[in-house]
């Protein structure tokens, strides 16, 4: 069985985010990238399947931010191959564009299972998994919290959570794309000594792709919510309060006459 995991870099919220001069994007200089949390879970889920079935795990990342580090970590965790998808972009494009990029890369490779995080904090236009499944004409299920493979690797048995405390188990015919919400266990820790060893010998594949076409969606403005002046509390007896309110309204010229 061949599993592909798609991972994506998102801005690290621990570092205070700044808006750049254009007012449309985050300031790249103060930005630090980190692997999207759900993608990290997708990788963990793939590794768990690998441990159970001996499947191979391929990891793909768009060459943005610290993608190389994330791929090295994936190797140290046990992925077979990792590939940097280079489109010459500075920041990740919208999910439609990303889906097209990845579809181009994945189509010739015949993976049985394609896992990706169900969403990322910087998704502009929906989540990647569904769009990718559409392009590859494969089934898609999202919000998954557990994946097991059926007999003969023909199907996957997945668990998905619904609001109201329900969990459904679904059978999905493979090949398929799955959007992972969380793996069966939190992503594993990689000791630094192993990471450093892997760094020395790491083979990170690279695949150049055409940058995406101009997209129908464009960012107009990026801003922080404008803060109101804040509320002030009035205190006193009902009569006093009534007077205060009347005074305030008059002050702001909101009373007629």
């Amino acid at each position: 069985m061949k599993i592909a995991v798609l991972i994506k870099q998102v801005p690290d919220l621990v570092e205070g985010l700044e808006i750049d001069a254009s007012g449309k994007a985050l300031d790249q200089d103060s930005l630090r990238y980190i692997i999207s949390e759900a993608d990290d879970h997708a990788l963990e889920q793939a590794l768990l399947i690998r441990e159970r079935t001996g499947a191979s795990v391929d990891v793909f990342a768009l060459d943005v931010g610290e993608a190389r580090d994330s791929l090295t970590t994936a190797l140290a965790k046990g992925a077979e191959r990792v590939t940097l998808v280079a489109a010459g972009l500075e920041a990740a494009p919208g999910s439609h564009a990303l889906a097209e990029l990845f579809a181009g890369v994945l189509r010739p490779q015949n993976f049985d299972l394609i896992l990706t995080g169900v969403r990322a904090i910087d998704d502009l236009d929906g989540s990647l998994g569904g769009l990718l499944a559409g392009l590859l004409e494969l089934p898609y299920v999202g919000l998954i919290r557990k994946v097991e493979t059926g007999p003969g690797g023909e199907t996957a048995i997945v668990q998905k959570e619904f609001p109201g405390g329900f969990i459904t188990e679904l059978e999905v015919k493979l090949p398929a794309v799955l959007g992972i919400q969380s793996a069966e266990q939190p992503p594993r820790y990689v000791p630094v000594s192993r990471l450093r060893q892997v760094m020395k010998t790491a083979k990170i594949g690279e695949q150049a792709v055409e940058p995406p076409q101009a997209q129908p969606i464009a960012v107009e403005r990026l801003f922080k919510p404008e803060e109101g002046a804040g509320a002030s509390m009035l205190e006193g007896t009902p009569e006093e309060l009534a007077k205060q309110i009347a005074g305030l309204l008059a002050e702001r010229h909101l009373l007629k006459g």
Binding site: P186, R188, Y189, V190, P191, S193, R194
Partner: peptide, 16 residues
């Protein structure tokens, strides 16, 4: 144990 990744989750978080 660290090498094998057998440590508690809070500790992992701290180390990360």
């Amino acid at each position: 144990l660290v090498e094998r990744g057998e440590l508690d989750k809070r500790l992992e978080e701290a180390l990360r």
